[in-house]
Each structure stands twice: as C-alpha cells, then as structure tokens.
Design a protein around this nucleic acid. Sequence first.
DNA 1: GGTCCAATAT
DNA 2: GATATTGGAC
Length: 505
Amino acid sequence: MSTTNSFGRSTQSIIAKDICILLVNDDHVCCNIVSNMLDHCRYEVFTYEKEMDALSIILEKKDTLEIILTNVHRTYAKKFEIIEHIEKEFKLQIILMSPDVDDIKKVSEGGGNGVTVYILKSLSVKEVNNLWANAMAQEKSKREISSSSSGKSRVKRKIETDEENGNVEKKTRIVWTKEMHQKFLEAIDQLRNDKVVPKKIAELMNVPGLTRENVASHLQKYRMCMKRAQGVFTSSPYDLTDPFNLNPSQANSQESHWNPFPFQIRSRNTTPSLFSLNFYESRLRTFPDMPLLSKIQFKPDRSFRVCGDEKKNILLSIEDNNNNNNNRICSDSHFAGFKLANDGKSIQFGQNGHFDDGSVNKSYIQQHDFCPEMGNDDSTLGPERDDWMSSVASLLGVDDSLPSILTQQQPPTLSHQNKVAATTMTQPPPSVGLQWSDWAEPPGFSPQQPPPSPPGNEVNDNFEIFSDFISPGLCELGKGIDENGVDATGICGFDDLLFNNQDLT
DNA sequence: GGTCCAATAT
DNA sequence: GATATTGGAC
C-alpha cells in the first residue's frame, strides 16, 4: 500500500476521512480527475496488485467505505464475483463505468449482481462530486449525528472551485437500466397523488449521480411512450361511436346523455377467436385451482361485447361456453378487461365470473408488458407470447403488422383469490402483487353499502375502470345469490347493462 | 432564481 | 434512438 497519488496501477482504493471510494479502474481520464480531487481533498490512496486485495481493503475499511467504483470492460466475470460478494457482505453502493454503452447494457441485462449505477464514459469532476455528495448525505443520515459539516463544506468548496475556473464539463451520459427504470416507476407510483415532476422523482429514486435533468429527460420519454401506447387502443378499426362525445350533433341528445359509456365499440364479424385464453391456459396451468379458465371462450360475432372508455380501458363481457344458449342475460356470465397500467409499459388483464362447478366466483388479474420502449426485452416466452399477441391483435382488429406494442411480457406477477372465500373467511387475501378486489369492486357498486375506503391515502386507480363503465343507477343489476346462497355480487351486472344498451351499439 | 416542459441538438 | 441541452413559461 502507498499514500501517494500515482495512478500507474490498474486498481486503486481512494479513502478519505469521511468517505471512501474504491476505484477499480484503469481509465486514465477518470484517474486524472480523481487525482485532481486528491489534490484538493487530501485523500489517502491505497493501491493493490490483485483484485482480491481490494476485498481485504474493503474488509479493513468497511465502516468508512461508501462507494465502489469500477470499470466494466475486459474481466467481467472475475469482477462480478467480487462485486457480488461486496454487495452481499457489505451492502455498499457499486458504480460501474464503461465507455461503451453496449457493455453496460450487456452487464445490466445479465442481472448486474448488485450494481446500483451505471455510468457511460469517463467520470467528470461534477460527476464525482455528485457521487461524493450523495454518499456523504447517506453517511450523514446513517450516523444521524452532526459532526459531518466539515465534509459537506468540502464538497461545496470543490464545486465552487469548478465554477470559478469556468470548468464546464460535458455531462456523463447515463444509462437507464432495468433497475433504475424500476426505481423510476416506483417513484412515479409513490407520487400518484402528488405532482409527478422530475425533482421529486429524482429525490425518491435516490440514485447517486442521477440528476434532475436526467430524470426530466427520461420522464419526457416515458410520457411520450405512454401517450403512444394509449393511442393504440383508439387506432383499431372498430366502429367507434361518438368517441369522447365530440360529435356536436349528439352532444346534447338524450341517448348520449344517459349512455354511461363515452363510446362503445363492437367487434367485427371475424372468425371466432379464443382471445388470449390459449395463453392463459398455458400460463395458469401451474395453478391447479384454475383449470376452468379454458372453458371461457369469446365468440366475436355475438357472444361478447367490447367497451372502452376515454382512458382507453377495454372491458369485455364473456359468455360461458357451457351456457351458450343465446345472447341474453346470463347469471354465469364472465367478463374480462384490460387497461393501460400505471407504469405505462404494460396492460393489466383481469377476468372474473361464476364457474359452472357452482362453487366459486374466481378472479384473476395479470399484468403484461406491452410498451417495449420503456421495458426490457424478454423474448423467452416463445409461442405463448405469439399467442397472446395475435389474440390481442385479433381482438383489437389489427393485423400482424401490429406495432411492437404487444410483443413483450414479464414473468406474471399473478395473484388470485377466491372472492367468496375472501369475504366469508378470516384468511387474508394474498398480499403479493395486484389484488383482484382492486379491479373488481368500484366504489358505489352497492350504493347503500359503499365499500370501505382504502387505508391511508392509497387510491385504488382501478376504480376508474368500472365507474366509467357502469353508471351508478344500474349498479344494482349486478346483485345476485349464487347457488351456495352466498352473495355473489360482483361485476356480473355488466352483461345486463350491455343488454339494455344493445340498441346503441 | 429554481423548476418544469417541450423542442431541439448531439 | 436515447439522452442531453436549451429556452420560454411559470
């Protein structure tokens, strides 16, 4: 070990009084920058010959070490062993750099093994300062005591020096990895009741080195993607009637007034489609209590209706295949719907209904990626994915030239619950993932007995779907008792509603 | 002066 | 195409 700032070695550790950055790097520009910082900040420098030596330094300095900074190129495998070890043992931030965006993508798609930030190209002085300041802040909150003022002022002084010198460095180009994007989405989700602005997102994400500008740029892309994704739902060749009530000739008509739907769309007379049931059947096969899904079938000519709202949510009524006597109101009816999810990159698909084993009213909800621009490619699903895509394409009435909107999926975060059981038993519903009740029980569905409001300030966004679809006056139609004498109030009134509105379609 | 946001540049 | 930068608006 040495205390000089000679940067001839390929791996070095830089340790300051308040913060320690382990630099595993042979990028000479980066080293020069850090060297420059050393001059200002009196770092101690530790060099070592082998990467395993870095581990011993970390072990020795684990109480002060904050950031691991390393290049990604060449010896991937070995470095990741170490990085993974560091992440598991010491819970340190790991920052990976590469001059090549493809390198970074390759690594991040491979899981990253605990890497928290990826940085393209060499570090700039500002970047290092950002990282440093961030680590300082974390360290400060960790200690929860003062005595950190000296370090903070030192960061400030450094930045001011840069500005005095007019040292305007080009910003490091960041790479939005899967993990960072996930944080981004979580931040947006947390802000759903608040104003979603770059600053707040950046704060919530709490990623070292990530600036408000970075987030603003990503947010801009996110919103564009969201807009495009929503447009897909209205670009289908369905017969749209008075979308958004923009037709002035109908704006004041009695019909459009009482019609609860902003618009209705009717399926074309295409060949009967199984929609995505092939997909679901294969997907749900691993869940033994769900075999009945295969008995639901769409028959586009008469047996299902598709409705949408101004938010481009789609709801379908489905008729049980074993009850296909006619098109009338049917207590065994099912429904399914899909909507653009809050993350802007997926759709939520749900269905529920009575099944002909007479026992339960089962509910399912799944979420699938469909906006590749904001997601990550998962093409491991093979034929299932194609089934899903083609069936949705068929439903939407678009052909195979369907834009790549429905080509991507993520492993299903599927949750399911037996609604009857959930209301009659004390056993709480599964807490993981989306709950069907989020989707299926709009407020005001039973006007006399409104469902309890969600705890805290949580908002059930899925309420919107059914409050859009079902007018308050018609909600009562959904009431019923199943053959076990259990109140089967659900969403089954939807068929009645469609039936009543049939002449409007 | 800070922030947002859409347009524009790289 | 993805991200950074710019410039007007608030």
